[in-house]
Design a protein around this nucleic acid. Structure first.
Lengths: 340, 340
DNA sequence: ACTTGGCACTCGAAACCCCGGAGTGCCAGC
DNA sequence: GCTGGCACTCCGGGGTTTCGAGTGCCAAGT
């Protein structure tokens, strides 16, 4: 089929361009790949591919490079995720197994991913929204100062200092503590509001004011604080692939410093635990228009709790990158699930 | 004094070079600064300065640029810290005042510093070692799983999950909890070990095994875990000053990703709360040999609890940078002290 | 209906050269 | 010890040339 060969040509162009970082011409294509036809034929195919918007020429009399659309087709139809080798998987497993707490898991994972892909890796902390309360602690710091600590089952800890107008005697604090713990332990964060709604009403007078303040802060912590955290690693790799960048490195670094941007980058791919690839201009952020983002959700139990992924140049090794991302996500999921 | 003028020349060279990023010649020097002598005289001075190793020529027939030693002399003898303007200080204060918790303080401060200096800013979390225990919590997660949470007075929270060999009944946990809280509340972390050393001996039989495991983890948490945390911001600024870098940006990014490197960068300047400036090769890390690091300790109460600072090109505005670093450190100190 | 070899053409990248100008070092004179 | 003068160096920018990879198109072949 002519159509088939044309796609093979596209695949070959992507592969060669990714490997060499140089526009690829018809001659070198037939040399490197056994396509069984002559350069002239390839040229015809290329002309068609160019008409379809899948490849482009930097300038006349140069080879072709894939366009964002070209990569899109490559990813969607012409490639498959490259699984990690057994050795690699073993390495991943043993590397991540040593983690002692959630921070450690996140950090090790994101670094590992950066190393594996030689790109910038991101990992989002398990969503608070989807997790349950493991423990709540109220600690008196002074007559009118209370420390609220919330521990989620994913291991995340949130803390807030509360300034109450009225003094809070220790016995009140203890009563409240037990009451709240009883109410919300094991409850999903999203449901905490319902569970403690009426607590304030059980108190009256001065006590009520103080309790109201505490409960209000608690609600803030579980509700308003959806601000998810993102950790990243491998920014040094930007320097490497920054060389042949369409734009400068700066906008990318700027984008990567914005938690908001990162969160949306990860957050948009709510497609369960299947890989999401956003290529070049498919990213809505200017600064990332010459990068591709590969993300995937990771599980805790059988629920997607957050995302992780990498940011790299559009000309990246998609199969390999996707393989690494998926593998790391699986291991992270396994660890989170086990260490529950 | 001839000697004096020579130093003025050095100062002028540093200032001009920092401003223009171009080697500065004798003619432009006399034009921009009113030195009251002719270019020829300046040339003689320059020759001497070059002999002394304070300035250098990129190539013959080019102007001079300061060497690391030249900057050293400039910082030590020829410049003074440039205080922030009132408006700036007010802006800093109001910006930092909104912080809700320690993480927030750290993050706001480091970002602010990056913005002010247009360089890469670092901030070290208040040292655990020097702080005291505000609260310890033991939460049973399952028959043999316990969550240990340690809250330091600086607001830092550390947590560990403990797997005990034997089951821990709830009443044992409660007894132990009260006992430990009583022992260590308000105690400096470094002294925790002493305080709980004999706790294990108060238990026997099965209980003892479990308690031993818990206490061991507690000790690990306070002792082994000296691993201080560092937060950084403004890496995007690397791109800006990366243009005229001796080396590449990569090694710098690599160095900045290594917590160890950052910690030593900050940790070495244990000179109380006075500014430390390390210029170019004075940094022991290869990757940072064309950068300068300006750090200063910040206080909580009247004790230095950690360091903050910036990393920038050796050709940086030292007086301004030092002013910003010092100002931010003071505000951070004030906030930490107040919100005790 | 495709494929292919041939051929003229395009155009960027590298090599080369040239020149101006900024800057230097040195020296003799003040 | 300062200064003007002077010869010298050498980087950087601009222009030109060359080289070669690559293209598009066409006519012939299967």
């Amino acid at each position: 089929m002519v159509e088939d060969r044309r796609l093979s040509v596209l695949r070959a162009i992507v592969e060669d361009y990714v490997a060499t970082h140089e526009p690829v011409g018809s001659r070198s294509l037939v040399e490197r790949h056994s396509l069984g036809v002559s350069p002239a034929t390839i040229r015809n195919d290329m002309a068609v591919l160019e008409d379809e918007g899948l490849i482009a020429q930097p300038h006349t009399s140069a080879g072709r490079i894939p366009t964002d659309q070209g990569y899109r087709v490559f990813v969607d139809k012409l490639s498959q995720v490259k699984p990690m080798s057994v050795a690699e998987r073993r390495a991943i497993g043993s590397f991540l197994d040593g983690a002692v707490d959630l921070d450690d898991v996140m950090q090790r994972s994101v670094r590992l991913l950066a190393q594996l892909t030689r790109q910038v890796a991101l990992i989002q902390y398990p969503s608070l929204t989807r997790s349950t309360v493991r423990h709540i602690e109220l600690v008196g710091l002074g007559p009118t100062r209370i420390l609220l600590v919330l521990i989620a089952d994913t291991g995340r800890v949130e803390q807030r200092v509360i300034d109450t107008a009225a003094a809070v005697p220790d016995d009140l604090l203890q009563r409240l503590r037990l009451l709240v713990i009883e109410r919300v332990n094991g409850v999903r964060l999203v449901d905490v509001a319902d569970k403690v709604a009426d607590v304030v009403e059980q108190f009256s007078g001065e006590e009520r004011t103080a309790v109201a303040a505490i409960i209000a802060t608690l609600l803030e912590t579980v509700v308003e604080r959806h601000e998810e955290r993102v950790m990243l690693a491998g920014t040094a790799n930007l320097a490497t692939f920054g060389e042949d960048f369409t734009g400068a490195v700066r906008p990318v670094l700027e984008a990567l410093e914005e938690q908001m941007v990162l969160l949306r980058l990860l957050g948009e791919s709510r497609s369960g635990d299947s890989l999401t690839v956003r290529i070049g201009h498919e990213n809505e952020f200017e600064g990332l228009s010459s990068t591709s983002v590969v993300t995937v959700g990771y599980l805790r139990g059988d629920e997607v709790v957050a995302q992780l992924g990498v940011v790299g140049p559009t000309r990246m090794d998609y199969p390999g990158t996707m393989g690494s991302v998926r593998a790391v996500a699986r291991y992270v999921g396994r660890i989170l699930t086990e260490q529950q």
